[in-house]
Design a protein around this nucleic acid. Structure first.
Lengths: 227, 227
DNA sequence: CATCATCCTTGACTTAAATCAATAATAGAA
DNA sequence: TTCTATTATTGATTTAAGTCAAGGATGATG
C-alpha cells in the first residue's frame, strides 16, 4: 500500500521493520489541506505529531503586531510538531501550509507503542530533533550576527548547493523568503536588486540564476558589499 | 558515592534504575575547569556529551568579527553537547565556562549502552532536546520580533518568576547579559538606565530590584517605552 | 588597602534596515 | 483572454541600535 511505502522511505522510520511500519500505517490519520490553511496555533495542546506527505508547511512565530518569523519550511518526509509530545504539551509556534498538502498525523500512543518495540525509532527521533537544533542554531547566528546581504547570500548558496542546479528555485514567494531571512520584502527586494546590478545574480521570478558564485561566497562570509 | 547521588537526581537520569546509574557513574570522566576556559570549539569532532556538576557554562556562536551570541547558559544538572552524537558529528557552537566548573563527560558508548537497556533514557533525552528547541524558538522570537527593551523585560520577568525573589540576581556580568539578549553593553546600559529613571527598577550591581512589575509586564508585551 | 584590570556608563555620531507610500508587475480566477 | 488580487519594486523618510571614544566604578589580588 502507498502509505506503507512512503513511511518506509522517510528518514524517521527507515530502520523500522515491516510489521511496525504496517502498524504505523494503520494508525495514521490522513488530512488534506488547502494552500494557506492553518494546521495549528501556538499554544494549542498537542497529542501527536505530523509528517508531510506532499506539499509544504511553514512553522513560524508571530509578533503582537503581526510580523512573522519563519522557523522552518517542512517538506515531504519531514516530521513536525513533535516537541509538545516530549516537553510542555503545547505547540511553541504556528504551522500553516504554503501549498496544498497531504499530511499524516500520528498519535502519541502510536508513536510510543512503536518506540517501545523499536528503540531505533528513538535514535531516529533524537537525530531529527538534533538536526532541528542545528537548523535553529544557524538561524540564530544569521539573525544575530549577520546582516541581510550575508543572510541572503548564505541562503542562496545553501539552495544552490542542495539542488545542484544553476537556476535556484526559491519555491516560495519573495515575501516568505523575507520572513525566513528575518527582514522585510522591501529590504529583500533592494538587496536582490543590488546583487543583480553588480552582475552576481539574475532574478527570474521565483528563480535566481547565480552568475558569480565567488562573489556570492564573499558576501556570505561578510567580505562586504556596501553602498 | 557522590557522583551516583548526583546522577540520580538530575532530570536526564531520574528514571534510570540503580545499577545503570552505577554503570554511568563508573564510565564518567570528571574534569575541572577554570573560569573562562574553553570546553570545545564550533566544528570540533564530538564523541560524547557533558553534564554540568557545578559551575556554569555558556554555549555561544561567534561571528567573524568576534561578536558573540549566547544560545544557552547551562547550570548544574544540565546536559550539553549531545547534538553531534545524533547529527552531524561536530559541535555547532562554542562552549566556555563562565565560572569555575566541574563537568562530567559521558562517551557515546556509555550512553548507547545504557539506552539499549533503559529506553526511558531515550524519552528523557528527547524531552531534553525538545526543551532546548523550545528555548531556541523563544530566543529567535526575541531576536527577530522584539526590540531590546521588550527582550530585557521578558528576561528579567523570567528570572523573577523563576527565582521568586524581589531582587533579581543576574548571576552573570551585564556584558554577558547583553550577549544573551543579542545587543551591545552600551545599549543594555542605556535601557536599564531608562527603566531606572522611570522608577520601574533599581540597579544594584548584579542585582535588579523590580519596583513596578506591572510596568515591566507592559514593556515585555510591547506596550512601549519610547524616547 | 592599594593597585591593576575588568566592567560599566555616558556622550556623540553613524548606519542598516524598518516603515510609509505609491506604483508596477505578476499570477490566478472567471 | 480580461479582470482582480496578490506580490514585488522603488523612493523618501524615520528610527532603533550599533560603534567609537573617553571616563568612572567596581572588584579581585597581592
Amino acid at each position: 500500500m502507498d502509505i506503507r511505502l512512503f513511511l518506509k522511505n522517510i528518514d524517521l522510520f527507515k530502520d523500522i521493520p515491516e510489521e511496525q511500519i504496517t502498524k504505523l500505517a494503520e494508525m495514521t490519520q490522513l488530512s488534506n489541506y488547502e494552500k494557506g490553511e492553518r494546521i495549528f496555533y501556538e499554544g494549542d495542546h498537542a497529542d501527536g505529531f505530523f509528517v508531510v506527505h506532499s506539499g509544504r508547511v511553514k512553522i513560524f512565530k508571530l509578533s503582537g503586531e503581526g510580523k512573522e518569523q519563519i522557523l522552518h519550511v517542512m517538506e515531504p518526509g519531514d516530521p513536525f510538531g513533535e516537541v509538545p509530545m516530549f516537553a510542555g504539551g503545547r505547540y511553541p509556534a504556528d504551522a500553516e501550509t504554503v501549498e496544498p498538502s497531504l499530511l499524516l498525523f500520528f498519535s502519541r500512543k502510536a508513536f510510543t507503542d512503536v518506540i517501545s518495540r523499536e528503540p531505533s525509532l528513538a535514535m531516529s527521533m533524537m537525530a531529527s530533533l538534533s538536526r532541528r537544533l542545528l537548523h535553529l542554531t544557524t538561524l540564530i547566528e544569521n539573525l544575530s550576527l549577520k546582516e541581510v546581504p550575508e543572510r541572503l547570500a548564505s541562503y542562496l548558496l545553501y539552495l544552490h548547493d542542495r539542488d545542484k542546479i544553476a537556476d535556484i528555485d526559491l519555491r516560495i514567494s519573495k515575501g516568505q523568503l523575507a520572513n525566513i531571512l528575518g527582514t522585510s520584502p522591501e529590504t529583500l527586494s533592494r538587496t536582490l536588486g543590488r546583487m543583480s546590478s553588480r552582475g552576481i545574480i539574475k532574478v527570474l521570478g521565483r528563480n535566481i540564476r547565480l552568475l558569480d558564485p565567488e562573489a556570492m561566497k564573499e558576501i556570505a562570509t561578510g567580505l562586504r558589499f556596501k553602498g
